[in-house]
Amino acid sequence: MGVQAEFVRLDADLLNDIRQLASIDAYRQLTDFDPIYCLDLDRAWRRLAPLMAAASFPINPITDGSPFPDEQRAWREGPGSRWLGVQDVALAAAHLSRTPYSVLAPLVRSVVEAEEGVHVNLDVESPDYGKPLSPDEASRIVVGEEVVRELTELLAEPYRDLCKFFDLAALDGQCTIFWAA
């Protein structure tokens, strides 16, 4: 989970100007924004995105929207770079505001257990210790209560930050850009 993610909120004209730049120039401009217009989700985006999908958000602010800067030049880390227009930002903000984290918290276990990746045998007594589990064995992994509790607590603050960020963007009539790097 080494990929970190950021959002920027900006007006539609500036979004269109930045979309016309070469990718490296667009990246430089986005990373030079005043921090009050930015949200750094660090690695929490990797679990917030599927949590919002599991909760059937009508607009997932991380995975929905249009490729940024466009389909051919989108940055492809994680879900790829995405932008949301003013109307979608307003819809996303309204849904985020109506959806307290307590609605998402019960979904953490199912999201974590559904994560893809290589699972290895951690039974030190097993002759297969350290070897990858078969898909069938991996599908039977149950995440412990303590891990679920810690992850649930860990994701609460980034979710609240995301809600505040989108409230401000909607209030100011702004668009958003999401990217992971």
Score class of each variant (00 low, 15 high):
residue 1 M to I: 15
residue 2 G to N: 08
residue 4 Q to V: 11
residue 6 E to I: 12
residue 6 E to K: 06
residue 7 F to Q: 03
residue 9 R to F: 04
residue 10 L to H: 00
residue 10 L to V: 05
residue 10 L to M: 13
residue 11 D to M: 03
residue 13 D to S: 11
residue 14 L to C: 06
residue 17 D to H: 10
residue 17 D to S: 08
residue 18 I to R: 03
residue 18 I to N: 12
residue 18 I to K: 00
residue 19 R to H: 08
residue 21 L to K: 10
residue 22 A to F: 06
residue 23 S to V: 10
residue 23 S to T: 15
residue 26 A to Y: 03
residue 28 R to F: 11
residue 29 Q to V: 08
residue 29 Q to D: 13
residue 29 Q to T: 15
residue 31 T to A: 08
residue 35 P to K: 07
residue 38 C to Q: 11
residue 39 L to V: 05
residue 39 L to T: 03
residue 40 D to H: 09
residue 42 D to M: 12
residue 43 R to G: 06
residue 44 A to T: 03
residue 44 A to P: 00
residue 44 A to E: 03
residue 46 R to Y: 10
residue 48 L to C: 12
residue 51 L to Q: 08
residue 54 A to F: 05
residue 54 A to V: 11
residue 54 A to L: 02
residue 55 A to M: 10
residue 57 F to G: 08
residue 58 P to C: 13
residue 59 I to D: 15
residue 61 P to R: 06
residue 61 P to H: 02
residue 61 P to S: 02
residue 62 I to L: 00
residue 64 D to A: 09
residue 66 S to A: 15
residue 67 P to G: 08
residue 71 E to I: 11
residue 71 E to M: 11
residue 72 Q to A: 15
residue 73 R to D: 02
residue 74 A to R: 11
residue 75 W to H: 08
residue 76 R to F: 14
residue 77 E to V: 14
residue 78 G to F: 10
residue 78 G to K: 01
residue 80 G to E: 01
residue 80 G to W: 02
residue 81 S to A: 11
residue 81 S to T: 04
residue 82 R to L: 07
residue 85 G to N: 12
residue 85 G to H: 12
residue 86 V to M: 04
residue 87 Q to T: 11
residue 87 Q to C: 14
residue 88 D to N: 14
residue 88 D to Q: 05
residue 91 L to K: 15
residue 94 A to K: 02
residue 94 A to M: 05
residue 94 A to Q: 11
residue 95 H to L: 09
residue 97 S to D: 15
residue 99 T to V: 12
residue 99 T to I: 14
residue 100 P to I: 14
residue 103 V to A: 09
residue 104 L to P: 01
residue 104 L to K: 04
residue 106 P to A: 07
residue 107 L to S: 05
residue 108 V to E: 06
residue 108 V to G: 06
residue 110 S to D: 10
residue 112 V to Q: 06
residue 115 E to M: 12
residue 116 E to T: 09
residue 116 E to F: 04
residue 117 G to T: 02
residue 117 G to E: 04
residue 118 V to M: 14
residue 119 H to F: 15
residue 120 V to R: 09
residue 120 V to Q: 01
residue 121 N to L: 00
residue 125 E to G: 09
residue 125 E to H: 13
residue 127 P to W: 11
residue 128 D to A: 02
residue 129 Y to W: 07
residue 130 G to P: 05
residue 130 G to K: 00
residue 130 G to A: 14
residue 131 K to F: 08
residue 132 P to A: 03
residue 134 S to P: 09
residue 134 S to R: 01
residue 134 S to T: 13
residue 134 S to I: 14
residue 135 P to F: 00
residue 136 D to H: 02
residue 136 D to N: 05
residue 136 D to R: 03
residue 137 E to S: 13
residue 138 A to V: 04
residue 138 A to E: 15
residue 138 A to Q: 08
residue 138 A to P: 02
residue 140 R to W: 10
residue 142 V to F: 11
residue 148 V to R: 01
residue 148 V to Q: 06
residue 148 V to E: 07
residue 149 R to N: 13
residue 152 T to N: 10
residue 153 E to L: 13
residue 155 L to A: 00
residue 156 A to W: 02
residue 156 A to V: 00
residue 157 E to T: 14
residue 159 Y to S: 02
residue 159 Y to N: 00
residue 159 Y to M: 13
residue 161 D to A: 13
residue 163 C to R: 14
residue 163 C to N: 06
residue 165 F to L: 00
residue 165 F to I: 07
residue 166 F to E: 01
residue 166 F to S: 07
residue 167 D to L: 07
residue 172 D to C: 03
residue 178 F to K: 03
residue 180 A to K: 05
residue 181 A to S: 13
